[in-house]
Design a protein around this nucleic acid. Structure first.
Lengths: 202, 202
DNA sequence: GGTTGACAGATTTTGCCAAATATGTAAAGT
DNA sequence: ACTTTACATATTTGGCAAAATCTGTCAACC
């Protein structure tokens, strides 16, 4: 019940990655030095190089770790026993996007994704796909095929719309509370269409 | 039937404003000179100054004109006879946001809005409110109070969700077609909740 | 598994200055 | 209702060298 997959990294390294992402998030990739990360992680700069061959790879690892963590959290939210489908989806969206509401990280990463040479694509895009798939699966298991057929939509379509609304909410919101409010309203309305009777588990 | 309000500006000035917005849109406010605008509008730079005291005000006027035009177009889309509610809303969203899909203008304006001293706030925010209000009114007239009460939402809530989804679609889309596809899916699902029987006019 | 200190080479930042470009005003002309 | 020419005053740009900072690697040490 502890970890869904064997821990690739030691606890120490995981902690470094967490701190690193936080530091990168403050001033962006370019304006963050290895020294900054090392200091924040309570480690010498050279100590960092023992774990990561260069800054680029450190960043990639930090992003990967972040996405893995977020996906785990999303998974927990979606599979919670308590709460209706609405609540589970809202908390999942919040776990997935909410933390980036005012952060530089989102725009930083998305500019990096423009670069075709960037390895980041191979890290970020599968994670996004995995998120969408999880949401779609949850939708699928909590709705009837009749309802889906009546509206002529697939669970994937519904997940895509929620994804779109999530991006919009992130973009429009100045605080995390505002984000949650918007995504709550959107989720409520979207799910209303396939009137799920508040709970349904397979 | 021609103009909903008396034309504040002459046709010539209107044409200048249209061109100006297009030019500003290409390289952003800062990197666009009065010379650039004048040339594009087939006018001398000094001719421009006869109409607008300075660059700032020219830009504001161009934005205001653009928003007015867009709102008129939105109005036409929403009040069209033909087509169901879905189609009307999708075309309205496209008229309102679709043209900015790859443009610098959106980000340019939104950074200007950060500045509390900017007069742009007083131009843009009312326009956004007017758009939301129009959409809300359309929703209101095409749905039953019963449906709204059943979902415990106001037409304004629905409009806000569509607005959120629209922003997300604009942000995620690389082409206008993609934008339309996303917004179509979102509208379809959102409206499905208050199962409007395809047409309803008051 | 780390520490410190030192190093070459690359990149960024800084300060400065000259040249170019842009803004806004004005006058005179059509 | 414009145009052209001209002008004072910013603001932006480009070059260019010195200084600072950052990266990545090594050695020596615990």
């Amino acid at each position: 019940m502890k970890a869904t997959r064997p821990p690739t990294e030691s606890a120490r390294v995981e902690q470094v990655l967490t701190v690193a992402l936080e530091v990168f998030g403050r001033h962006g990739f370019r304006k963050t030095s290895m020294e900054d990360v090392a200091r924040a992680a309570d480690l010498s700069r050279q100590g960092l190089y023992l774990h990561f061959p260069n800054k680029e790879i450190l960043f990639q690892a930090a992003v990967r770790h972040e996405l893995d963590t977020a996906l785990d959290e999303v998974s927990q939210c979606l599979n919670k026993e308590s709460g209706g489908l609405d609540r589970r989806i809202v908390s999942a969206m919040d776990a997935w996007l909410g933390r980036y509401v005012g952060s530089m990280l989102a725009s930083d990463i998305s500019t990096m994704l423009e670069n075709p040479a960037s390895q980041l694509k191979d890290i970020v895009e599968p994670a996004i796909a995995a998120f969408d798939a999880q949401v779609a699966a949850t939708i699928a298991s909590a709705t009837t095929k009749t309802d889906l057929r009546r509206l002529r939509v697939t669970p994937e379509d519904v997940a895509a719309v929620l994804h779109t609304a999530g991006q919009g909410a992130k973009y429009l919101s100045r605080s995390r509370d505002e984000f949650v409010a918007r995504i709550t309203a959107a989720t409520h309305l979207v799910l209303a269409g396939l009137h799920t009777t508040s709970s349904a588990r397979r």
